[in-house]
């Protein structure tokens, strides 16, 4: 992605404006709303939490975890980013619309429910797939994992949609009404 547009730097904000378009893609909040500690922590923690959510997703069939909790954990990572970076961060850094994520999750879920029919099994029936991968060794996967992936996407999409509509939406409304009150 190109360097974000910083054509007219507001001197009040430019001094601590982000050098990299990672967390706050140039859409910087006022310095009073920022917390340096939180931003740095978020940058460190965000990918870790996402990886952990994938771990929960994969381990879910035999251990504690599964699509729903993994999706919520991943959603929490985005909530953290929203708190640290404000509405602008999520709004600008995201290429996919949340409803698309929701729809994709549902589609994956329904298709994985119907897919066993192609192998002569019943709807929603699951089987165990085993393979010997070169580095990882023997890997076993329950096919219900695909359903879990659908749930995971669905939940992440719902959380993103919530952040967009209730999070950023309300913030924007409040800012607008605040501006009106000052005029």
């Amino acid at each position: 992605m190109a360097e974000p547009d910083r054509a007219d730097p507001d001197p009040e904000q430019a001094w601590d404006g982000p050098r990299q378009p990672w967390l706050l893609n140039g859409d910087c909040r006022g310095p009073r709303h920022r917390s340096l500690l939180l931003e740095i922590t978020t940058r460190a923690v965000f990918p870790t939490v996402l990886v952990f959510s994938v771990y929960l997703l994969l381990v879910g069939h035999y251990g504690p975890g599964g699509g729903f909790s993994a999706g919520l954990v991943a959603g929490l990572a985005f909530v953290l980013r929203h708190i640290a970076g404000g509405g602008g961060d999520l709004g600008s850094g995201r290429a996919v619309r949340p409803p698309t994520v929701i729809g994709a999750g549902m589609a994956v879920g329904v298709v994985s429910a119907l897919l066993p029919l192609a192998f002569g099994l019943r709807v929603l029936e699951s089987a165990k797939l085993g393979a010997a991968l070169p580095v990882l060794g023997a890997v076993e996967v329950q096919t219900s994992l695909f359903l879990e992936v659908g749930v995971y996407l669905l939940i992440v999409g719902v959380v993103l949609e919530l952040l967009r509509s209730l999070g950023s939406g309300i913030e924007r409304d409040l800012e607008e009404s605040g501006e009106r009150a000052r005029q």
Binding site: S165, L166, G169, I170, R172, D173, E176
Partner: peptide
């Protein structure tokens, strides 16, 4: 504002 409506009902 249309976005306000969108905010509440998705």
């Amino acid at each position: 504002d249309d976005d306000v409506e969108a905010a509440a009902t998705g």
